[in-house]
């Protein structure tokens, strides 16, 4: 780890100013991913601006409906919050499916969104990686690809986004509140993360000095019966091979609206718009669920070690929708 300067920000504007004026600076939240990357030599910030003590540590109902989650709220507190458990169970379940109890106590809402891929080649500085070192090549292509993307990947990068929480947030149409050098703005979570294209080093649309201050959940009646299912190589404490966040609004045996997002399949939480469209007005039957899954996965391009992800994703989605219907 290279030496770095440490500053504790007193408010969001000061934090943004500190990072904006310093190309080697970055924000520090709970540190569970950033400190790990620093130990691995994957990230080498010259200055850490600690935002974990800023007053963004509450979960509160919004006046017009919905809920505002402060970016410094730990993952464990968010998962356990009564508002989330009762109104957005998919979010509690997604959070609880990630990491371990100790890590959830440290990791923050903002940091969870901005954690970086666990692609083994990205994390190994001795191997080429376009995300870590643009232009150096992709070691995953032709390498070990069990965990990698089957949707939306590029020649340059086949990494997946590791967050469970972000998959639930994308399904819920959550919005991030961002404080940047030019003031504040809102970004839908579904548009926060990027597909890799030829710039895999950019995980999100945020600039270096953009600070996430909150995540807003819209009021959503159908979310009270939402769910998250994660498939992984062991029962607990592992990243997703595939995960599904879903909510279903069914009346008289017909799907009025479906909301679906996949995790573990792409460089970003994958909102399954095609499957949702296929299901609108369709009968709430296993055949329709299967057709929707197949519509979404039609353009899947598996790699050498992960062709299993196509049927696994389809079956997981069908199973989740069957349970929700």
């Amino acid at each position: 780890m290279i030496p770095f300067d440490y500053r504790r920000a007193t408010d969001a504007e000061a934090a943004v100013d500190l990072v904006h004026g310093h190309p080697g600076a970055t924000f520090l939240g709970g540190g569970t991913n950033l400190v790990d990357r620093m130990k691995l030599g994957v990230s080498e910030p010259e200055m850490l601006v600690d935002v974990s003590r800023l007053p963004y540590d509450t979960v509160e109902p919004l006046p017009g409906g919905g809920v505002r989650i402060g970016s410094a709220v730990p993952n464990s507190d968010l998962a356990a919050h009564p508002l989330i458990r009762e109104q957005y169970p998919v979010l509690s379940q997604a959070l609880l499916a990630g990491a371990s109890g100790q890590l959830r106590n440290l990791a923050t809402t903002g940091g969870n969104l901005l954690q970086r891929t666990r692609c083994v080649y990205f994390q190994d500085v001795t191997t080429p990686c376009n995300k870590r070192e643009p232009g150096s090549g992709c070691s995953a292509r032709g390498g070990y690809t069990r965990q990698h993307a089957i949707l939306g990947a590029s020649q340059a990068c086949v990494a997946t986004h590791p967050s469970d929480m972000a998959v639930a947030l994308a399904m819920l149409d959550a919005t991030v509140q961002v404080q940047g050098p030019d003031g504040s703005r809102k970004i839908p979570v579904a548009e926060l993360h990027r597909l890799p294209g030829d710039e895999p080093e950019r995980d999100t649309v945020l600039g270096q000095a953009d600070l996430i201050t909150a995540v807003d959940l819209p009021e959503l009646a159908m979310a009270t019966r939402s769910t998250y299912r994660k498939v992984r190589d062991r029962a607990s404490y592992a990243f997703a091979l595939v995960s599904v966040a879903a909510a279903l609004d069914v009346a008289d045996g017909t799907v009025r609206q479906a909301r679906i997002a996949f995790g573990g399949l792409a460089h970003k939480p994958w909102r399954a718009a095609r499957a949702e469209e296929t299901l609108r007005g369709a009968p709430a039957t296993e055949e329709a669920f299967r057709a929707a899954a197949e519509a979404e996965l039609a353009e899947a391009t598996p790699l050498a070690d992960n062709a299993f992800k196509v049927p696994m994703s389809r079956n997981t989605l069908v199973s989740v929708l069957r349970d929700l219907a």
Partner: peptide
């Protein structure tokens, strides 16, 4: 009062 992994926690923070 909360369980945490200390290897990923910076002392200064």
């Amino acid at each position: 009062g909360r369980r945490v992994t200390t290897c990923l926690s910076l002392a200064v923070a």
